[in-house]
Amino acid sequence: MIRCEEIEPQLTAYLDGELEGPAGSVVRGHLRGCEACRAIATDEAALRDGLRALPAADVPASMWAGVQARLAAAEVADAERPSWRRAVARWTPSVRRLAPTFGAVGLAAAAAAALIVWRAHGRAEDAVAPAPPGVAITVPIPALSPDTALAPSDRTAPSFGGAAGVGGAHGSDPRLVAPSDDDVTADLAHEAARTSAAYAATADNLAAQLADVRSGWPADRRQQFDARLADLRIAVAGAGEGRGRQRALRAEIRYLQGALIRDEIASNDRVLAAPGRLR
């Protein structure tokens, strides 16, 4: 008589409909008589049904950062366990483990992805040189503060009447931009904010250059410009830190450059990216 330990490894294939003929019949027969295995199969099937029913999730970048952080933490804890347990746990698919932690979206992402952490394997004979020093950005680097995206800056440029103004809109928070040269992990954690800050500094600089130009425009032109810039800054403020915010800042830079250099006020939708996907 077939034992539960022999059935369990076949459950995945069975539920996927990949066991045909006698092999499928054996599993089916065992499940009829074994309550424990039937419970496992029911759970597995329910999980799959739930996953299929979930809408496709547009997982934000922060989600991945969260997954990475939790995996890192888990692996630190893992390192304290006996080596044989690490060896077993290392390659365990993480879907079920992550599910309660990340909720529905996380579950969908994790299930859809089958997360694997690819650990080192195979010691190399050839070595690689150390990395060059980190990001070398020479522009002034203010930090973004979503709350101040529409407020005039007290640092980079004069501001004007109207909702948007063209003064520097991106406030300063030194905590976000302080380089963390003490450890690579901390440095990576600040990477997105640093990059966003550099883009924000560029936008502020362009806005400052536009100040004089704008004062010479007729009122309706100023109004159109302010409204468009306000939209772009709202998009910046609303974007989560990371690539989304950087994309929004790049769109703002493009618009300001167009206004400053090409007298294009209405829109910068002439660029390649489709509307709604401005780069």
């Binding site: 630190v76 020093p133 901390a186 440095d187 990576l188």
Partner: peptide, 12 residues
Amino acid sequence: DGGREVRPVARG
């Protein structure tokens, strides 16, 4: 990976 017990290493 980070953690409390790791020896700090510069990114470069």
